[in-house]
Amino acid sequence: MRTSNKTKILDAAVRVINRDGVRAVTFESVSSESGLTRGGLLYHFPSREALLRGIDEHLVQAWEASMQQLLDVPAGQASAVERHAAYMRVSAHSATRAELIFMLESVQPDSDVAPWSEAMARWAPPPPRSGEADPAVWDNFIARLAADGLWVYEGMYNGRIDEDVRAGIAQRLMAMLRAQAE
């Protein structure tokens, strides 16, 4: 199936962000990266704000699709451990700088949309409640923090970690989740 121009625009904008940051997203930079005209971009995104909102939604959808692809069942039918495991694997292997930037931006108190917050509520374990005694709840959250930390490390510092080290981290996080499933 042929990729739509809207998807080409969004994918190109994400490449610009991953390479040069959000400030570099202009109609000119995205037009150049996508090979489409400025008019073609304006047809789909009449303003830079509309383009940024589109990027945000595009990233959330792609992020959730990556996790859904790891499950054998729809997310709503998967157990909490299965959803958390998918979250850990995606965060430890393929989370991007653009996703991190947009996630941080969308949780601002004055934000009128919170696509990342909604996605996180579906996929990632919440913090334990005060007085929580179940070690599994603690392990879920600690594994999430570790996966998030890896993502932040790479996103903020362009600190690519060797693939074998990354795989080792993912295995350790998965072991935390597996121990509770047994």
Rank of each mutant, 00 (worst) to 15 (best):
R48T: 12
G131V: 06
E118K: 00
R53Y: 03
G39V: 04
N158M: 09
R172N: 14
V90Y: 08
Y87A: 14
R23N: 15
R48I: 09
V25K: 03
A175E: 15
P127H: 07
L100M: 11
S117V: 08
P74K: 00
A80N: 08
R89T: 15
A181I: 12
V60Q: 02
A85E: 14
R53Q: 11
D56S: 15
R144M: 14
L52Y: 04
G21S: 02
Y43E: 10
S130W: 15
M176T: 14
F27N: 12
R129G: 08
R38P: 07
R178N: 09
H93K: 15
L41G: 09
Q171T: 13
A98E: 07
M88I: 15
A124R: 09
M67D: 07
Q180L: 09
S106C: 00
M67E: 07
I101L: 14
Q180W: 12
L100R: 06
P125K: 02
R129N: 06
A65K: 12
V73A: 10
P115V: 04
E118S: 06
Y153Q: 15
F102H: 03
F102Q: 00
Q68W: 00
A78N: 02
R83Q: 09
A119F: 00
L177H: 06
A98W: 07
S91W: 06
E28G: 09
S130N: 11
A75E: 08
Q171P: 01
M176C: 05
D112R: 11
E64N: 00
G40F: 02
G131H: 07
S117L: 10
Q180H: 15
E132Y: 01
E132S: 04
A65P: 02
T37K: 01
L104I: 07
P125G: 04
R48Y: 03
